[in-house]
Protein backbone atom coordinates (compact mmCIF):
# COMPACT_ATOMS: atom_id res chain seq x y z
CA UNK A 1 0.00 0.00 0.00
CA UNK A 2 1.07 3.58 -0.69
CA UNK A 3 2.52 5.52 2.23
CA UNK A 4 -0.02 7.90 3.72
CA UNK A 5 0.36 11.55 2.72
CA UNK A 6 1.38 14.04 5.34
CA UNK A 7 -1.90 15.97 5.17
CA UNK A 8 -3.94 12.86 5.72
CA UNK A 9 -6.21 12.66 8.71
CA UNK A 10 -5.83 9.43 10.65
CA UNK A 11 -9.53 8.70 10.38
CA UNK A 12 -9.43 8.91 6.60
CA UNK A 13 -6.50 6.63 6.54
CA UNK A 14 -8.38 3.88 8.29
CA UNK A 15 -11.22 4.20 5.85
CA UNK A 16 -8.85 4.19 2.94
CA UNK A 17 -7.38 0.99 4.13
CA UNK A 18 -10.72 -0.69 4.43
CA UNK A 19 -11.86 0.26 1.00
CA UNK A 20 -8.61 -0.44 -0.78
CA UNK A 21 -8.48 -3.63 -2.80
CA UNK A 22 -5.50 -4.69 -0.72
CA UNK A 23 -7.82 -5.88 2.06
CA UNK A 24 -9.51 -8.34 -0.23
CA UNK A 25 -6.10 -9.75 -1.02
CA UNK A 26 -5.47 -9.99 2.71
CA UNK A 27 -8.08 -12.69 2.95
CA UNK A 28 -6.68 -16.17 2.97
CA UNK A 29 -7.64 -18.08 -0.16
CA UNK A 30 -10.59 -20.42 -0.17
CA UNK A 31 -9.55 -23.88 0.93
CA UNK A 32 -11.07 -27.12 -0.24
CA UNK A 33 -10.25 -30.24 1.71
CA UNK A 34 -11.30 -33.71 0.65
CA UNK A 35 -12.37 -35.72 3.68
CA UNK A 36 -11.93 -39.47 3.99
CA UNK A 37 -15.66 -40.13 4.08
CA UNK A 38 -16.11 -38.56 0.66
CA UNK A 39 -17.33 -35.19 1.84
CA UNK A 40 -15.61 -31.90 1.12
CA UNK A 41 -14.82 -29.16 3.60
CA UNK A 42 -14.85 -25.68 2.12
CA UNK A 43 -13.36 -22.84 4.17
CA UNK A 44 -14.12 -19.36 2.85
CA UNK A 45 -13.17 -15.95 4.18
CA UNK A 46 -15.01 -12.73 3.55
CA UNK A 47 -15.69 -9.34 5.08
CA UNK A 48 -19.15 -8.65 6.42
CA UNK A 49 -20.96 -5.29 6.43
CA UNK A 50 -19.05 -4.18 9.53
CA UNK A 51 -15.73 -4.97 7.85
CA UNK A 52 -15.10 -7.87 10.16
CA UNK A 53 -13.37 -10.88 8.78
CA UNK A 54 -15.71 -13.85 8.65
CA UNK A 55 -14.62 -17.43 8.24
CA UNK A 56 -17.21 -19.79 6.87
CA UNK A 57 -16.62 -23.51 7.11
CA UNK A 58 -18.98 -25.71 5.18
CA UNK A 59 -18.90 -29.44 5.01
CA UNK A 60 -20.60 -30.68 1.89
CA UNK A 61 -21.24 -34.07 0.47
CA UNK A 62 -21.99 -34.08 -3.23
CA UNK A 63 -24.50 -36.65 -4.30
CA UNK A 64 -25.14 -36.85 -8.01
CA UNK A 65 -28.84 -37.12 -8.59
CA UNK A 66 -29.80 -37.74 -12.19
CA UNK A 67 -33.15 -36.61 -13.41
CA UNK A 68 -34.54 -36.62 -16.90
CA UNK A 69 -36.24 -33.33 -17.61
CA UNK A 70 -38.00 -31.71 -20.48
CA UNK A 71 -35.52 -30.04 -22.90
CA UNK A 72 -37.28 -26.73 -22.27
CA UNK A 73 -36.52 -27.07 -18.57
CA UNK A 74 -32.93 -28.05 -19.24
CA UNK A 75 -32.46 -25.01 -21.43
CA UNK A 76 -33.83 -22.71 -18.77
CA UNK A 77 -31.31 -24.03 -16.27
CA UNK A 78 -28.55 -22.55 -18.44
CA UNK A 79 -30.02 -19.08 -18.49
CA UNK A 80 -27.86 -16.27 -17.18
CA UNK A 81 -28.94 -14.69 -13.93
CA UNK A 82 -30.10 -11.08 -13.92
CA UNK A 83 -31.41 -8.34 -11.64
CA UNK A 84 -30.22 -8.59 -8.06
CA UNK A 85 -28.92 -12.09 -8.75
CA UNK A 86 -26.71 -11.02 -11.66
CA UNK A 87 -23.55 -11.31 -9.58
CA UNK A 88 -24.41 -14.62 -7.93
CA UNK A 89 -22.31 -17.59 -8.88
CA UNK A 90 -23.79 -20.85 -10.09
CA UNK A 91 -25.88 -22.68 -7.52
CA UNK A 92 -28.09 -21.23 -4.84
CA UNK A 93 -26.76 -18.06 -3.20
CA UNK A 94 -26.42 -18.29 0.56
CA UNK A 95 -28.13 -14.96 1.22
CA UNK A 96 -31.37 -15.77 -0.54
CA UNK A 97 -31.72 -19.52 -0.30
CA UNK A 98 -31.38 -21.74 2.71
CA UNK A 99 -32.61 -25.13 3.74
CA UNK A 100 -35.08 -25.34 6.57
CA UNK A 101 -35.23 -27.90 9.31
CA UNK A 102 -36.65 -31.27 8.51
CA UNK A 103 -40.41 -31.52 8.74
CA UNK A 104 -42.12 -34.85 9.09
CA UNK A 105 -45.24 -34.76 7.01
CA UNK A 106 -47.16 -37.95 6.62
CA UNK A 107 -50.77 -37.59 5.62
CA UNK A 108 -53.05 -39.63 7.83
CA UNK A 109 -56.75 -39.65 8.62
CA UNK A 110 -56.09 -39.53 12.34
CA UNK A 111 -53.10 -37.20 12.21
CA UNK A 112 -54.20 -35.41 15.34
CA UNK A 113 -53.78 -38.59 17.34
CA UNK A 114 -50.47 -39.35 15.63
CA UNK A 115 -49.07 -36.01 16.63
CA UNK A 116 -49.68 -36.83 20.28
CA UNK A 117 -47.98 -40.20 19.94
CA UNK A 118 -44.66 -38.46 19.46
CA UNK A 119 -44.19 -38.75 23.21
CA UNK A 120 -44.09 -42.50 22.78
CA UNK A 121 -40.97 -42.55 20.67
CA UNK A 122 -38.08 -44.35 22.36
CA UNK A 123 -35.86 -41.31 22.67
CA UNK A 124 -38.34 -39.39 24.73
CA UNK A 125 -39.01 -42.49 26.80
CA UNK A 126 -35.32 -42.99 27.52
CA UNK A 127 -35.01 -39.37 28.54
CA UNK A 128 -37.97 -39.72 30.83
CA UNK A 129 -36.50 -42.79 32.49
CA UNK A 130 -33.27 -40.98 33.04
CA UNK A 131 -35.02 -38.04 34.59
CA UNK A 132 -37.26 -40.14 36.78
CA UNK A 133 -34.91 -40.03 39.75
CA UNK A 134 -33.99 -36.42 39.16
CA UNK A 135 -37.23 -35.18 40.64
CA UNK A 136 -38.00 -31.97 38.86
CA UNK A 137 -40.46 -30.24 41.08
CA UNK A 138 -42.85 -27.46 40.26
CA UNK A 139 -43.01 -24.63 42.76
CA UNK A 140 -46.69 -24.10 42.08
CA UNK A 141 -48.22 -27.52 42.24
CA UNK A 142 -45.36 -29.77 43.29
CA UNK A 143 -45.88 -31.79 40.13
CA UNK A 144 -42.96 -33.31 38.29
CA UNK A 145 -42.40 -30.55 35.79
CA UNK A 146 -40.67 -27.20 35.62
CA UNK A 147 -42.52 -24.31 37.16
CA UNK A 148 -42.61 -22.55 33.82
CA UNK A 149 -44.49 -25.49 32.34
CA UNK A 150 -47.05 -25.72 35.08
CA UNK A 151 -50.60 -25.82 33.76
CA UNK A 152 -51.74 -23.83 36.77
CA UNK A 153 -49.11 -21.14 36.54
CA UNK A 154 -51.52 -18.40 35.46
CA UNK A 155 -54.15 -19.19 38.01
CA UNK A 156 -52.35 -20.41 41.10
CA UNK A 157 -49.85 -18.80 43.39
CA UNK A 158 -46.72 -20.82 44.27
CA UNK A 159 -47.03 -23.34 47.05
CA UNK A 160 -46.85 -21.92 50.52
CA UNK A 161 -49.33 -19.22 49.67
CA UNK A 162 -52.78 -20.35 50.73
CA UNK A 163 -54.27 -20.02 47.24
CA UNK A 164 -52.16 -22.78 45.81
CA UNK A 165 -52.27 -25.08 48.76
CA UNK A 166 -55.42 -26.95 47.90
CA UNK A 167 -54.28 -27.64 44.38
CA UNK A 168 -50.95 -28.84 45.56
CA UNK A 169 -52.44 -31.16 48.06
CA UNK A 170 -54.88 -32.44 45.52
CA UNK A 171 -52.24 -33.10 42.93
CA UNK A 172 -49.92 -34.81 45.27
CA UNK A 173 -51.73 -38.12 45.14
CA UNK A 174 -51.99 -38.29 41.36
CA UNK A 175 -48.94 -40.41 40.81
CA UNK A 176 -47.15 -42.78 43.12
CA UNK A 177 -43.95 -40.83 42.67
CA UNK A 178 -45.53 -37.48 43.15
CA UNK A 179 -46.98 -38.30 46.54
CA UNK A 180 -43.70 -38.29 48.36
CA UNK A 181 -42.63 -35.15 46.55
CA UNK A 182 -45.76 -33.34 47.60
CA UNK A 183 -45.42 -34.33 51.21
CA UNK A 184 -41.80 -33.34 51.24
CA UNK A 185 -42.61 -29.99 49.69
CA UNK A 186 -45.21 -29.10 52.26
CA UNK A 187 -42.98 -29.67 55.23
CA UNK A 188 -39.76 -28.71 53.59
CA UNK A 189 -37.14 -27.28 55.86
CA UNK A 190 -35.76 -23.86 55.15
CA UNK A 191 -38.68 -22.65 53.08
CA UNK A 192 -40.03 -19.22 53.92
CA UNK A 193 -42.86 -19.12 56.45
CA UNK A 194 -44.68 -15.84 56.92
CA UNK A 195 -44.48 -14.54 60.51
CA UNK A 196 -48.18 -15.03 61.06
CA UNK A 197 -47.90 -18.71 60.24
CA UNK A 198 -44.85 -19.44 62.37
CA UNK A 199 -44.90 -21.34 65.63
CA UNK A 200 -48.28 -22.75 66.55
CA UNK A 201 -48.95 -23.94 62.99
CA UNK A 202 -50.70 -22.81 59.90
CA UNK A 203 -53.96 -24.54 60.62
CA UNK A 204 -54.74 -22.68 63.80
CA UNK A 205 -53.83 -19.30 62.46
CA UNK A 206 -56.02 -19.83 59.45
CA UNK A 207 -58.92 -20.81 61.65
CA UNK A 208 -58.82 -17.74 63.76
CA UNK A 209 -58.42 -15.46 60.76
CA UNK A 210 -60.76 -16.93 58.23
CA UNK A 211 -63.55 -17.84 60.58
CA UNK A 212 -65.87 -20.75 60.19
CA UNK A 213 -67.06 -19.95 56.72
CA UNK A 214 -63.68 -20.36 55.06
CA UNK A 215 -63.12 -23.70 56.66
CA UNK A 216 -66.43 -25.10 55.63
CA UNK A 217 -65.93 -23.82 52.11
CA UNK A 218 -62.69 -25.73 51.86
CA UNK A 219 -64.16 -28.89 53.20
CA UNK A 220 -67.01 -28.96 50.73
CA UNK A 221 -65.05 -28.00 47.64
CA UNK A 222 -64.48 -30.49 44.87
CA UNK A 223 -61.69 -30.33 42.37
CA UNK A 224 -62.79 -31.50 38.95
CA UNK A 225 -60.10 -32.29 36.43
CA UNK A 226 -60.07 -33.53 32.85
CA UNK A 227 -62.83 -31.11 31.95
CA UNK A 228 -63.41 -30.53 28.24
CA UNK A 229 -62.08 -27.30 26.69
CA UNK A 230 -65.58 -26.51 25.55
CA UNK A 231 -67.11 -26.73 28.99
CA UNK A 232 -69.09 -23.82 30.44
CA UNK A 233 -69.55 -22.93 34.08
CA UNK A 234 -73.30 -23.20 33.68
CA UNK A 235 -73.07 -26.76 32.48
CA UNK A 236 -70.94 -27.75 35.44
CA UNK A 237 -73.33 -26.03 37.80
CA UNK A 238 -76.26 -27.91 36.29
CA UNK A 239 -74.43 -31.21 36.63
CA UNK A 240 -73.47 -30.72 40.25
CA UNK A 241 -76.62 -29.01 41.45
CA UNK A 242 -78.33 -32.38 41.36
CA UNK A 243 -76.48 -33.34 44.55
CA UNK A 244 -77.20 -30.26 46.62
CA UNK A 245 -76.78 -26.53 46.78
CA UNK A 246 -73.73 -25.33 44.94
CA UNK A 247 -72.29 -22.11 46.35
CA UNK A 248 -69.51 -21.51 43.87
CA UNK A 249 -68.37 -22.82 40.52
CA UNK A 250 -64.96 -21.83 39.29
CA UNK A 251 -63.84 -22.96 35.86
CA UNK A 252 -60.27 -21.98 34.97
CA UNK A 253 -60.18 -20.35 31.57
CA UNK A 254 -57.41 -19.27 29.28
CA UNK A 255 -57.08 -15.52 29.27
CA UNK A 256 -56.49 -15.25 25.53
CA UNK A 257 -58.79 -17.82 24.08
CA UNK A 258 -61.54 -18.02 26.65
CA UNK A 259 -61.36 -21.81 26.43
CA UNK A 260 -61.46 -23.87 29.58
CA UNK A 261 -58.11 -24.99 30.91
CA UNK A 262 -59.32 -28.38 31.99
CA UNK A 263 -60.03 -28.03 35.68
CA UNK A 264 -62.70 -26.55 37.89
CA UNK A 265 -63.63 -26.13 41.53
CA UNK A 266 -67.15 -26.70 42.77
CA UNK A 267 -68.10 -25.62 46.28
CA UNK A 268 -71.12 -27.12 47.98
CA UNK A 269 -72.97 -25.67 50.91
CA UNK A 270 -72.99 -29.05 52.57
CA UNK A 271 -70.10 -31.46 52.86
CA UNK A 272 -72.33 -34.50 52.58
CA UNK A 273 -73.65 -33.31 49.25
CA UNK A 274 -70.10 -32.80 48.15
CA UNK A 275 -69.22 -36.33 49.18
CA UNK A 276 -72.19 -37.68 47.23
CA UNK A 277 -71.26 -35.66 44.19
CA UNK A 278 -67.67 -36.79 44.44
CA UNK A 279 -68.68 -40.46 44.53
CA UNK A 280 -71.13 -40.13 41.66
CA UNK A 281 -69.30 -37.79 39.36
CA UNK A 282 -65.83 -39.29 39.54
CA UNK A 283 -65.51 -41.14 36.27
CA UNK A 284 -68.55 -39.48 34.73
CA UNK A 285 -68.36 -38.96 30.99
CA UNK A 286 -68.68 -35.33 29.98
CA UNK A 287 -68.05 -34.07 26.43
CA UNK A 288 -66.06 -37.16 25.45
CA UNK A 289 -63.84 -36.93 28.51
CA UNK A 290 -64.01 -38.80 31.76
CA UNK A 291 -64.16 -36.44 34.70
CA UNK A 292 -61.98 -36.93 37.71
CA UNK A 293 -63.53 -35.54 40.85
CA UNK A 294 -61.91 -35.33 44.26
CA UNK A 295 -61.89 -33.10 47.27
CA UNK A 296 -59.84 -30.00 46.72
CA UNK A 297 -58.17 -30.30 50.11
CA UNK A 298 -58.04 -33.45 52.06
CA UNK A 299 -60.00 -33.27 55.25
CA UNK A 300 -57.33 -32.73 57.84
Amino acid sequence: MAAPQATHDWADEVEDQEESPATVADLPPTQKIQNKDGSTTIIEYRYNDLNQKVKTTRRIRFITHREVVNPRVAERKRWAKFGLSAKDGPGPAADTTSVGENIIFKPSVNWRKDAKDESKDPNAQAMKDKLKDKKVKCRICNGEHFTARCPYKDTMAPIGETGGADVAAGLADEGPGAASVGAAGAGKKGSYVPPAMRGAGAGKAGESMGGKYGERDDLATLRVTNVSEMAEEGELRDMFERFGRVTRVFLAKDRDTGMAKGFAFISFADREDAQKACDKMDGWGFKHLILRVEFAKKAA
Binding site: K81, F82, L84, S85, A93, V99
Partner: peptide, 14 residues
Protein backbone atom coordinates in the same frame (compact mmCIF):
# COMPACT_ATOMS: atom_id res chain seq x y z
CA UNK B 1 -37.85 -15.83 -10.24
CA UNK B 2 -36.51 -19.03 -8.66
CA UNK B 3 -35.57 -22.51 -9.78
CA UNK B 4 -37.92 -24.86 -8.02
CA UNK B 5 -35.55 -27.81 -7.69
CA UNK B 6 -32.86 -26.10 -5.59
CA UNK B 7 -34.18 -22.67 -4.70
CA UNK B 8 -31.58 -20.84 -6.77
CA UNK B 9 -32.66 -17.34 -7.70
CA UNK B 10 -32.73 -16.75 -11.44
CA UNK B 11 -33.29 -13.05 -11.16
CA UNK B 12 -35.42 -10.12 -10.13
CA UNK B 13 -37.69 -7.86 -12.15
CA UNK B 14 -37.61 -4.17 -11.31
Amino acid sequence: AWFAHNGERLGTYH
